[in-house]
Simulated scan of single mutants.
Amino acid sequence: MNIADLITWFEEWANPAWCESWDNCGWQIEPGVLHQRARVLVCLTPTLAVMEEAIAFQANLIFAHHPLIFNPLKSLCTGEAIAEMVRLAFTHKIGVYSAHTNFDQVQDGTADVLAQILELQEVTPIVPTLPGLGYGRVGLLKPALKLQELLAAIQTRLAPPHLIFSPTADLQQTISRVAVLGGSGASFISTVVKTDAEVYLTSDCKFHQFQESRDRGLILIDAGHYATERPACDRLVQKFESLNLDWVQLSHKDEDFRQFFP
C-alpha cells in the first residue's frame, strides 16, 4: 500500500475535518512521498529523536498523534527543533502526518482504547459530537472494583511513572461507573459529573481541579499525558499491520518529557 492510499484509508475512519478549530490535523510535512510504498513509524509526539529513528529505519512516514505545528510559523531558523524537523524531512523524504482531535473521537481512538484497557462495558462518549463519535468514554465496571483495586489496575495496565488521585477517606469504596479521557481532560470535569461517574481517569490536572472534583464528589485520577495516550498509538500500529504495509513500528524514542525524583 502506498502512502496516499494509507492516508485515504485512515481519513475515512478519522476524518481530519472533525478536528477542533484550534487544532492542526493532517499533513504537517509532505515532501513528495505520497506514491511511495508506506514504511511507517507511529509515535505520540513527533520530535527530533523520533525523526532520527525514522531515518535509521528508512521510514518514509512519521504518523503522530500530536501535531508538529500548532500555530502559524513566523520563521524557520537553523538550530530550532521544528526547522530541523523540516530540513531532515525534506532531505530524507520523510512525511509527518498528525491525527489529533479527530483520532480522539473515533472507535479505537485515544478514549476508546482507555475504556477497553479498563474493560468498561455499556460505554458511551462523555461528550457526543457526531453519531458514533465523541470525546471521552464513560462506562461500567463489571464486576465493580474497590478504589484501591482500580488504582492498582491502572498502575499495572498503563504503567504511569506517577499516579495521582483525589484525597479520599476510603480506598475500599466500591467503584462501578468510570469515565476516561486520554490527554488533557480537566476541562471536562463538569461534564463528567453529569454522567454520574464515580471516577474520572485523565491527565494534566491542576491543584484546584483536584479540589473541584473532590468538592463535587468525583474521584479524579491523573495518570499522565503519555500513559493515557500512548496505548492508542500501539493500537494504531496493530491496525496498520492489518493493511500489510511494507513496514510499520511503534516508536521507541517517544518521550514523556517528565521525570520524577524517587
Rank of each mutant, 00 (worst) to 15 (best):
N2D: 03
T8D: 14
T8I: 11
C19N: 13
W27Y: 10
I29R: 00
E30A: 07
P31N: 04
H35E: 13
Q36K: 02
R39L: 06
T45I: 01
A49W: 00
E52T: 03
N60G: 03
N60A: 05
A81T: 10
A81Q: 10
A83S: 15
V86A: 14
R87W: 04
T91H: 08
V96W: 04
N102H: 06
Q105M: 15
Q105G: 07
V106T: 04
G109E: 12
G109C: 08
T110W: 00
T110S: 06
A111Y: 10
L120F: 09
P128Q: 05
L130Q: 14
G132A: 12
G136H: 09
V138G: 02
G139Q: 02
L140Q: 10
L145K: 07
L145S: 05
K146C: 09
E149T: 00
I154H: 00
L158Q: 06
L163Y: 08
P167I: 10
P167A: 12
T168F: 02
L171S: 11
S176W: 03
S176P: 10
V180G: 04
V193T: 15
V193H: 12
Y200T: 13
K206E: 10
Q211D: 14
R216Q: 15
I221D: 12
D222V: 12
D222P: 13
A223C: 13
A227W: 08
L236G: 00
L243H: 13
W247G: 00
H252P: 02
H252C: 13
E255V: 11
